[in-house]
């Protein structure tokens, strides 16, 4: 038997169905990624994020047989994480607490600009604070796709699987999201 580190997600899933202790490898493989993801989705409190994370993995385990092998496991687990974050807001009856953009994320936003330089141009003056402020004002549906595309580095097909929207809608939302983000950034700078 090969070591879990060299196994694919799908192989580990099939192992978990035979031996539940393998599940810890799933948890450890995705723990950090999903922690960052739920924080980016607006759960800023560390304890809350940990609780949500635990709930995500618990649900993943319970629903392992629902995993569609035609999807990537990563997309499937991100979808559960996304849904769980939304459930968290609903349960708490609160809005997402702004969107967390670390200073380190600024370079990722520049990537957005590189993809379509006519739409977004970042210079050094546009710091993380401006970006965070602009992103926090962005509509949820645009924010979600931009986070997945530029922060989680997901392909269009993966974003489609995670958010359960047609691939065409992913492209449209990314394009419109970037346009709106640019406008928000411009507006923010005018007010500074």
């Amino acid at each position: 038997m090969s070591h879990p580190t060299s196994m694919s997600d799908e192989e580990i899933v099939s192992m978990v169905l035979r031996d539940q202790s393998f599940f810890q490898h799933i948890v450890m493989r995705y723990e950090e990624k999903l922690f960052r993801y739920v924080r980016r989705l607006g759960i800023r409190n560390h304890e809350d994020a940990q609780d949500v994370l635990q709930e995500i993995f618990f649900k993943v385990y319970r629903n392992l047989n629902a995993f569609d092998t035609t999807l990537s496991f990563s997309s499937w687990i991100y979808r559960i994480a996304h849904n769980e974050a939304i459930s968290f807001y609903r349960k708490k009856q609160v809005r997402p607490e702004g969107h967390l953009i670390d200073e380190g994320d600024e370079h990722l936003l520049r990537e957005m600009a590189k993809e379509d330089s006519s739409e977004l141009r970042f210079d050094k003056r546009r710091n993380a604070e401006i970006l965070a402020q602009a992103l926090s004002q962005l509509e949820r549906k645009y924010y979600d796709v931009l986070v997945l595309r530029y922060f989680e580095h997901k392909e269009y097909e993966e974003i489609s699987d995670i958010l359960k929207i047609p691939i065409g809608s992913v492209g449209t939302r990314i394009y419109r999201g970037k346009q709106r983000l640019k406008k928000l950034i411009d507006d923010t700078q005018v007010h500074i």
Binding site: M1, H3, P4, T5, M15, D19, Q20, S21, F22, F23, Q24, H25, V27, M28, R29, E31, Q50, L53, Q54, F57, F58, Y61
Partner: peptide, 21 residues
């Protein structure tokens, strides 16, 4: 038996993994 393996991804089993398990 795999249950004895306490490390994976070349690091010790995380607190979260332990809590979930």
């Amino acid at each position: 038996m795999h249950k004895d393996i306490q490390t994976t991804e070349n690091k010790p089993s995380s607190t979260l993994a332990q809590r979930v398990m």
